[in-house]
Write a protein that binds this DNA or RNA. Structure first.
Lengths: 329, 329
DNA sequence: GCATTGACTGTAAACGATTACAAGAACGAT
DNA sequence: ATCGTTCTTGTAATCGTTTACAGTCAATGC
């Protein structure tokens, strides 16, 4: 048995479809009309068809969040934050995983024109001109949680990761470390380049040189572990800053394998301050790049843009904080 | 400038809308017709409206996955598995977080009637008659990843967690442990009751008594930590089985606080064998309840059900395996 | 050369809602 | 009693597609 339509309800209540629609959407009607429609709708357990409704009114009440990897705890944090804002505003959140390829992201943005959703928050790992162009010509509002050039003219919420790296360096120096190494993620990603630059600047500012660097092939535990092995083959730093928490945990595991203890022999700092930082052992000092706040602000920006499409694009920068835990004590 | 519609394309190409639709959907047409339509569509960068299309054809090509907590790594695993199957079949995956309340889940299932998606995989923490009834009367296919009574007559994929707990007990006994404690999650949840039952049966079978039990208020790290504290106030087990990995990690942190080392003083076993088990320190022995496989099978069941709605409901049970790591070495 | 076939193409009716517009009812003012 | 106003309700158009059906036209067979 198929779903009842609005005309079935109208027939059952003995009124017109227009009246049913009006009553169910809270427009004024007599008490008797309201009663009859309500009763008939309940009787048939009618629920309006979202497809038809969104075709007519031009809105789906769905928003999309696109992230590179649903498994990365930092995206989980962002997801929760976005979900909170979005559902409070009466929208449903659709979470999509883009692949690691920038082409996937371009396809996703172009696909938005199909009207699946009323807006998009995208957190791209890699950005190129195609993606920016796709966002610019996209006819549904898009907010980028990440770093794109100001001249692109798109709404943006980003972290200040160079400053975050600098905070980590300062903290390590202040706690007496002298030979600081850096394990980055893939340098052809947006966060990768930003963090590499931040580290280079920070140590230069303090007149230091890097006590070793390595590049993980990915922002994952396994890649972090491999990069840690690489790093310790040639260097003996007394502190390691890592491009994210997963890499940091990988490095800590590797250190344990060499009989080095954290924080006594080597201090380790992660980035993202994800739930993992708290769970890891020892608990990981981590640069909080404000993923929750970034998610929240991005969602708010998107809602505002949906409200008023003529507003000038805004670029929000969320400042980092440092969560000090035992891994650098 | 608003999106071009199919009639704009038809006008530009000098043909009828029906022809445009046919060409774009790959139905036979003359080479010239195909060429003209393709050219006009590309010219206007036309993409068909998903809302209108799904209203007409009655399908959205979206499937929904509903989980209680997007942050729980076990759901992340399941999510990835479902996403893989679903996108290979040409569907988009919509991930929704239900709240912890069963009423939220009922509302979600009822809301499916709006036609947001063509099917639903739901992994409910708590199940009651309302939820089962909602699933039964729901006119879009639903697959439950979890445990519901056979007489409910719904497609189901579930884990065998009693057997999983038994495997953990056997492993601990085989490695010389004698005083086994159990830290459960909330006992009013489906996995909570199943695991409590499994533990009670297993230790009885081996003629043991529990060396202590505690109940975390939630399947989270913080709750696990608190439950660990509770447990060790009164008991001195040499092994602890935990209802999931997050709780296990919480317990391990607590143990470290007492100067007890894992695995020398106390062995710890988690459940779910999530990514966290590998990351934790020491790496956590964990019962793999097959979340990836459960996700995969659930997705396949859903696709099959969409294909043929008359099939008798199936109940699939995925068998557990044990991933032995250092926490019980 | 004409009827028949077959392959394409166009016309128009859906899908299920919302909503502009018109029509009818009720009511008070003149 | 009549008119105008206001409030409620119904009729029908509309959103952008797909698709059943009918129509056109060339090719084929006799």
């Amino acid at each position: 048995m198929s779903r009842p339509t609005i005309s079935a309800v109208a027939r059952a209540a003995g009124v017109s479809v227009a009246s049913v629609s009006r009553v169910l959407n809270g427009q004024p009607a007599t008490a008797e009309m309201t009663e009859r429609v309500r009763r008939a709708a309940a009787e048939l357990s009618y629920v309006p068809d979202a497809r038809a409704r969104s075709l007519k009114v031009g809105r789906t009440l769905q928003l999309t969040l696109a992230v590179a990897d649903v498994g990365n705890p930092v995206y989980v944090t962002m997801m929760r934050a976005v979900e909170g804002v979005v559902s409070a505003a009466g929208y449903r959140l659709v979470v999509t995983a883009t692949g690691p390829e920038v082409a996937d992201e371009v396809a996703l943005v172009q696909g938005m024109a199909r009207g699946y959703a009323d807006g998009l928050v995208i957190s791209p790992l890699r950005v190129d001109d195609d993606l920016i162009k796709a966002i610019q010509v996209c006819d549904v509002p898009v907010v980028v949680a990440g770093n794109v050039p100001a001249k692109a003219g798109v709404d943006t919420v980003r972290a200040n990761s160079p400053k975050g790296v600098a905070m980590a360096v300062e903290h390590l120096l202040a706690t007496g470390r002298e030979r600081i190494a850096f394990v980055n993620g893939p340098v052809d990603t947006v966060p990768g380049t930003a963090r590499a630059k931040g580290f280079a600047e920070a140590i230069k500012r303090y007149g230091l040189t890097a006590a070793g660097t390595a590049e993980a092939t990915d922002f994952t535990f396994a890649a972090g572990r491999a990069a840690g092995r690489e790093l310790f083959r040639t260097s003996r730093p007394d502190a390691v800053i890592c491009a994210n928490d997963l890499i940091a945990v990988g490095v800590m595991h590797e250190l344990a394998g060499y009989g080095l203890t954290v924080p006594e022999d080597v201090a380790v700092v992660g980035m993202d301050d994800s739930e993992l930082a708290e769970l890891s052992f020892p608990p990981l000092t981590s640069v909080n790049l404000g993923s929750a706040e970034r998610g929240r602000r991005a969602a708010e920006l998107l809602l505002a843009r949906i409200e008023d499409d003529t507003r000038a694009p805004r670029r929000i920068v969320v400042q980092p904080t440092l969560s000090v835990r035992r891994s650098t004590a």
